[in-house]
Write a protein that binds this DNA or RNA. Structure first.
Lengths: 189, 189
DNA sequence: TTAAAACGTTGCCCTAAGTCAACGTTTTCA
DNA sequence: TGAAAACGTTGACTTAGGGCAACGTTTTAA
């Protein structure tokens, strides 16, 4: 049950079994349904989630009702409303499992206690942040100056299973396209 | 000369004068010209820069010759090609001072030594990453589903001096607009 | 289990924003 | 300091992709 998470932690640096077990003891398994909301728009985020199975989507809805997907966390990755978790302001975004999922969750308090007390876990957090930053950068990089076809090729390249795993609507809202445009392009490719 | 940087470090947490002085001793002042390139496209990034005066622009040019600006670092902020600095791969982006600038620079080696040896500096790095991540997120957030006018209002809101300080061309390449469109919108507002 | 709601795809039309070009202004650098 | 290059602005034209609607399919939930 903790294998994926243990691997994730180990990859950030050497760690003894005892410390690892202590870290893991702070995580709790939760099972969620398809389309279950983990965090509502106006809530302050209090948990970090590691995806053991399934997928977390981070998305928002603006005043005109347009839905925008910011991020997907798949098996073996962390997902949360990080800005809200960091500064404890309302999230202004939703967290949702878009498939039946198994998540390992840790409270914000426990998470930052581990960061402050256990140097190896500080490294893990550093790794999460570095990866998050690079991912966000790549996305800006990947999107600016790309037309619709290039965006779709880009996502196929970054994560080949993306379009078959994610619904047309959510994929479109991630890529910044209308569902109809994405549908037409998939047909064309 | 080190005042801004010292303030930046102090804001991440309590620090004694001696440790602070040790950290500062690793930074070196460099003065740069307008439009001076600090890092070339295929180079691996070896330095982190703190902007004391002036402005660093991070940008890239794709195969069709289109220039895209990823980030501006102004006075009191850090700027570098962070993905390249982290993983020591070629940057595929440029660093440039777009105004006559004064930068406090530290080598990658010294930077990560400080991160590993001095807990307070690890906090500074954590802060840089958290801020970078949130900034990148806000930008994706701010841009998706926005039309040209909304983007311009957004940037005026985020950083009111932006359009007067940054050239039309660079501002357009940051906002993902053509220079003509940005020019027309500025006229309209 | 089934009625209702949501989704995917496609056609038609429209509009926001890009391209290109012209021209005056500003910046560069030899 | 002055010629050349780059930039900003504006007009005329073009086009990528969004909006809307229709309709069949899939999903939801009572």
């Amino acid at each position: 049950m903790f294998k994926l998470l243990a691997d994730y932690i180990k990859q950030a640096g050497e760690i003894d079994e005892h410390t690892l077990a202590f870290i893991l003891s702070k995580f709790k398994l939760i099972k969620t349904r398809r389309n279950q909301i983990l965090l509502d728009y106006h809530e302050v985020c209090k948990n970090h989630y590691f995806v053991n199975k399934g997928c977390i989507r981070v998305f928002t809805i603006n005043k005109t009702g347009l839905e925008t997907t910011r991020f997907f966390a798949f098996e073996g990755g962390f997902g949360t409303a990080l800005p809200s978790l960091i500064d404890q302001q309302p999230a202004f975004e939703y967290l949702q499992t878009i498939e039946k999922s198994e998540l390992l969750t840790i409270t914000r308090t426990d998470f930052y206690s581990l960061v402050d007390q256990i140097p190896q876990f500080a490294k893990v957090y550093r790794h999460i942040l570095e990866l998050g930053f690079i991912t966000a950068q790549k996305r800006i990089y990947g999107f600016q100056g790309f037309d619709a076809i290039e965006k779709v090729k880009w996502i196929n390249n970054q994560y080949p299973k993306f379009l078959s795993r994610i619904s047309n609507k959510m994929a479109a809202s991630y890529l910044g396209l209308s569902p109809s445009t994405l549908s037409r392009i998939k047909h064309k490719l």
